[in-house]
Simulated assay, not measured.
Amino acid sequence: MPSDTMPLLVASGVDAGYGTMQVLWGVDLDVRPGETVLLLGANGAGKTTFLKSLVGLIDARQGSIRLGGDDITQMRSSDRMRRGMTYMSELAVFPDLSIEENIRIGAQALGHANPNRRLDELYGLFPVLRDKRRDAASTLSGGQRKMLGMAKAMAAEPKLLVLDEPSAGLSPLFVKEVIRILRDLQGRGIALLVAEQNIGFLEVATRVFVLEGGRIRFSGTVAEMSDNEALRRAYFGLK
C-alpha cells in the first residue's frame, strides 16, 4: 500500500465506558489522510464515548489507538491535539467569551505561529462570524454556534478533525450548511471523522462505520451500505 494511503488514525479493539458501565466492545475503525469517515448510529449507540476515547477525554480500557503511526493510547488529550487531532463536541464553545476569543483559544492549543492569519482564513470560511467577532458566543443562534465550534476546532490546522453530532439541534437549512462546509474542508485535504445519526452526512462520506450497542456492525463504502438490506431498512429514509 502506498504511504499516502496508510491510515492516519487506527483504533483497534477499543473497549471503553464509565465506572462499572461498559459502553464499547472491541471497536475497530480507521481514517486515512484526506478522507471523510462517517460513524453512524442512533442515540445511545456509543458514538460520543468512542470519540472521547480517541481524543483522550476518557481512557480506553482495552485496545489501542494510533495516530500517524504512533501509539497514543496512554497519551494526554493535549498531546494528542499537538499531534494534529482536534475535537468538536456538541457543546463546542465557551459561551461567555467572544467569537474571536473562542477561535484564538483553538489556535493557542497548538501554539499557532500566526493566529491573526489563521483568523482571516477562518473568517473567509465562516463569513457569518466575521461581523459578530466581538460578540459573546452566547448571542449566536444554534447554527452559528456550530459554525464557531468548527472554526475553533479548525484554528490549529489539524490533520484530523473529529466532530460529534454536528447536526444536533439544527434546522434542516443549517444542516445543509454544515454539510457544505464539510465538503469545502474536504477540498483542503483535512481528514474528517464525523459521528452522526443523520444519514444526510452520507453525502460527504468516503466510508461508513455503523455503531450499534457499542459494537461496529458494518464498515464499508456508502454504496456497500446501501446494498445491505438490513442496514437499508434501519437507516435509509430516516432523518
Rank of each mutant, 00 (worst) to 15 (best):
L39R: 03
L29I: 07
L8F: 05
R66S: 00
L148T: 07
L8A: 06
V204N: 01
G26D: 05
E157L: 11
K132I: 09
R188P: 02
G213V: 15
G68Y: 11
T49K: 14
D227R: 09
S12R: 05
V204G: 12
T48I: 15
E212V: 04
A153F: 03
G149C: 06
D28C: 07
G213L: 02
G68V: 15
L122W: 02
M6N: 14
L238F: 13
P158W: 10
V175L: 05
K47I: 02
G149E: 15
F218P: 00
Q108E: 02
L9V: 06
D15R: 10
P166Q: 00
S77K: 06
L24Y: 12
A16D: 14
T36V: 07
A155S: 00
P2F: 00
R207I: 00
Y87A: 15
A205F: 06
A155V: 11
P7D: 00
A156S: 14
R134V: 06
A151T: 04
A153G: 13
G106N: 15
T86Y: 12
T36K: 02
K239T: 12
R215C: 11
R133N: 15
M81E: 09
V55T: 15
Q197A: 05
G189D: 03
M147W: 04
D30Q: 14
A136N: 11
S171M: 08
L24T: 07
L67S: 12
R233F: 07
N43P: 04
D70V: 09
R133H: 09
I199C: 14
G13I: 00
A45Y: 06
R82F: 01
V194E: 07
R130L: 04
K159C: 00
L110W: 15
S78D: 15
G106V: 01
E177L: 13
L161A: 09
E196V: 03
T20H: 15
L125N: 09
G41F: 05
Y18H: 02
N102E: 06
D164W: 13
N228F: 13
Q197M: 12
M6K: 08
I181N: 11
L122Q: 03
V204Y: 09
L54R: 09
M21P: 08
V37F: 09
D184I: 14
D227A: 13
L9M: 00
G213D: 03
V222A: 14
E224V: 13
R82Y: 11
D79N: 09
A223I: 07
L163K: 11
V128S: 06
L193F: 00
V31T: 12
L51D: 00
A137R: 08
L163V: 13
L24Q: 00
R233M: 08
A234W: 10
E203A: 11
A234R: 10
V194A: 00
P166Y: 01
R133W: 05
V210E: 03
L148I: 14
G169N: 06
